[in-house]
C-alpha cells in the first residue's frame, strides 16, 4: 500500500529540489563564465568540465528529491541512501564550483539531515551496518570523484569521474548474485588508475575497491540490527521510522 510520506520527507524533498536546481545553475555558471569570476568559482583549471560535473550531480539530487516525495514506509533503505547521496553530492560539489556552492550545498546538506531525521538514526545505523562493505565501496567512489575533479587534462578528469560513478553504482548493485556486474564496474576504475599510476593513491584505490567489491558480493549483508516494530504513524512529523526486516543487502 502506498503511504503518504511524512512532512519531514516532503520538506527534505523540497530542499533537495531547490538545492539541486540552484546547483544546476551554479554548474552552468561555472561552465560558461567560471574563468571570468575566479574569486566566486574557485579559480579552477577546468571550469567547463567541473561545471558539467556539477550539473550532472545536481541533476541526480533532483531525482533524489523526487524519490523522497514518493517515498513509502517500505523504502527506508532508499531514504537512507538518498540521504547519503545528497551529502556526497554536497561534499563533492563543494570542490567544483567554489563559493557558488555555498547555498546549494547548505540546502542539500539540510535536505540530507532532514531525510535522516525522518528515517531515524536507528534506521540509518542499521542500514549502514548491514551494508558496511557496500558503503565502503561507495565511499571509495566518492574519493575517486574527489581526485578526479582535481586532475588534468580533461581526459583524465573524465576517466576519474567514470571510475567514481562506477564504484558508486557497484556499491548500489553489490550483492551475492551480482558478482560479475560489480567486478565489471570496479574494472572501470582501471583506466584512471593506469594514467595516474605514479600518484600511488588511484591504483591503490582500485586494488582495494576490487578486494572490497569481491567481499561485498560474497558476504550476504547481515540482518538489520533494529528489531521489527509496528509500522509507525507516518503522518506525525518527526516520527522516527523503524525499519522492517530488510532484504539481504537492503534490496
Amino acid at each position: 500500500m502506498t503511504r503518504v510520506p511524512p512532512k519531514l520527507l516532503i520538506l527534505a524533498g523540497r530542499l533537495a529540489a531547490i538545492g539541486g536546481s540552484l546547483g544546476i545553475v551554479t554548474g552552468i555558471a561555472q561552465a560558461t563564465i567560471g574563468s571570468r569570476i575566479p574569486e566566486w568559482s574557485g579559480n579552477k583549471d577546468q571550469p567547463v568540465a567541473l561545471g558539467l560535473l556539477t550539473i550532472a550531480l545536481s541533476a541526480t539530487t533532483l531525482a533524489a528529491a523526487q524519490a523522497l516525495r514518493r517515498s513509502t514506509a517500505s523504502r527506508d533503505s532508499v531514504m537512507v541512501r538518498v540521504s547519503v547521496w545528497l551529502a556526497v553530492v554536497a561534499a563533492v560539489c563543494s570542490t567544483t564550483v567554489g563559493r557558488l556552492w555555498v547555498i546549494p550545498g547548505l540546502l542539500l546538506i539540510t535536505a540530507a539531515g532532514t531525510t535522516l531525521a525522518a528515517c531515524g538514526w536507528d534506521q540509518f545505523r542499521s542500514e549502514v551496518t548491514s551494508n558496511w562493505l557496500r558503503s565502503l565501496l561507495g565511499i571509495l567512489g566518492a574519493f575517486e570523484l574527489l581526485m578526479a575533479v582535481s586532475a588534468a587534462p580533461t581526459a583524465t578528469i573524465a576517466a576519474g569521474l567514470v571510475a567514481g560513478a562506477a564504484l558508486i553504482a557497484a556499491a548500489v548493485l553489490a550483492g551475492p548474485d551480482r558478482g560479475l556486474i560489480v567486478s565489471g564496474l570496479v574494472a572501470v576504475t582501471l583506466p584512471f588508475a593506469f594514467v595516474t599510476w605514479w600518484a600511488i593513491i588511484p591504483p591503490l584505490l582500485s586494488i582495494i575497491a576490487f578486494a572490497i567489491g569481491i567481499a561485498a558480493t560474497r558476504v550476504p549483508a547481515t540482518r538489520s540490527a533494529v528489531p521489527n516494530v509496528a509500522p509507525p504513524d507516518l503522518h506525525s512529523p518527526g516520527h522516527t521510522q523503524r525499519s522492517r526486516r530488510s532484504a539481504p543487502n537492503g534490496r
Partner: peptide
C-alpha cells in the same frame, strides 16, 4: 577494510588538496 579505506581517504584528500594530478 574500514581502516584501509580511511587511509585511502586521507591519501585521496592530499591528492586533491595538493594538486598531485
Amino acid at each position: 577494510a574500514t581502516v584501509v579505506v580511511a587511509g585511502v581517504g586521507a591519501g585521496s584528500y592530499r591528492v586533491f588538496d595538493n594538486g598531485v594530478l
